[in-house]
Design a protein around this nucleic acid. Sequence first.
DNA 1: TTTCACATTTTTTTCGATATTTTACTGTTT
DNA 2: AAACAGTAAAATATCGAAAAAAATGTGAAA
Lengths: 224, 224
Amino acid sequence: MGKLLSDQNLFEQMRARVVNGEFAPGQRLKAEQLKADYGVSASTMREMLFRLSTFGLVDFQEQRGFRLPEHSADLLHDLTQFRILLECQGTCLSIRLGDLEWEARLSAAHHKLSHIESRLCVEDLSPEFLALWTGAELEFHQTLIDDCGSDTLKQTHGVIYQRFRQQMIATDKRVDYVPENIKEHQGILDAALNKDEDLTCNRIREHLSRNLIRPLTKKAQVIV
Amino acid sequence: MGKLLSDQNLFEQMRARVVNGEFAPGQRLKAEQLKADYGVSASTMREMLFRLSTFGLVDFQEQRGFRLPEHSADLLHDLTQFRILLECQGTCLSIRLGDLEWEARLSAAHHKLSHIESRLCVEDLSPEFLALWTGAELEFHQTLIDDCGSDTLKQTHGVIYQRFRQQMIATDKRVDYVPENIKEHQGILDAALNKDEDLTCNRIREHLSRNLIRPLTKKAQVIV
DNA sequence: TTTCACATTTTTTTCGATATTTTACTGTTT
DNA sequence: AAACAGTAAAATATCGAAAAAAATGTGAAA
């Protein structure tokens, strides 16, 4: 298989594999086996698994190795709720702080995404196309919060998004695409470009709520 | 020095050291040197530093090792802002979801904290006493969000709190104690027990704002 | 048949040595 | 003196093997 990968690439590859459902939930990940895929030693592989574990993308238990996280509806709910918090907060701040440049980038990200999503309607979904969609979806949501001015928030969101995606894929290999998605993304874009913070938040919340087990209790005002 | 530490203890010890200002900001952390302190090999030490780096408590750069994060007023600002978001959100949810048991625990945590803080007035601060205060302060703030129902939020808060504390200590060895602290903690407790979500948020925000460079732009409603 | 003790196999963790890369130093040329 | 190349020193990353621990299997006793 692929060889001569730099450390960074190796991490990236493994990240993609554990997120994109190449392993079954709960499956053991043995460094001894995986090392063959990358032509590195078990120690290096172990270190890589360790790094993934600190992002919550693989579980680690002392003296009994690594395994893929179990799928859990509760966890997906929790991650969704947290995504709502981070994306609402981040987007509001971006609306406030972002300049014309940000609006342009957001518009561009949405353009790409909507183009892909419209084709997703008709074609059936190959893994490559799915990866394309995933990438575009991520970029749109990341751009939303990109000008919030808080690296901490953005980094945290990145981690949570990966774990969210991992759980989504574990739930069901099919993409969570529904025709509503197109409308919802459009709605978020419009509200954001209109600089209507409340409306944007509502639409983000609405958009993500699909993955909640139980509806949110009620609105709460949270401050920053 | 200490020997025969389990892996977990070793991590905990190193965490305490890098947080509590035993090393200067920017200082290199060489596994080869540190291994002597715990009687383990450089590899094991390296792994430990790696784990700390994924929490943001030490910086890691490929091919040039580990070092303590630089102190940065901007970073402290950012971490504070994020703490405000997480603690407001978590506390509001706890108020809503927490039962009598939670109120009791919160009350207990505050009792301990306020007792320590009142003594902090008169005595001068030995490192041991400071550690006592830090522990109590952490427990109070953790208890606030403890019944929010989101493990993700609580874990994230734990990580952010550690980094925040690290930056605080790097700023100035003295505790950030001011007489206002006692009043502020009391105010937060009262509002929370009164189940007044808005007031509680305001007081948490007020309490933490001390560490912001610039004041918050304005209130924003963020939803969950 | 069940339970427990013991031995075997597998898996995980730790280690010291080696290879690679970076950093520091030295002397040469412009 | 400044810039550069080349060499030596130090630090980091990688590896395979040894040690430790857990899981598995076997068989005897209840």
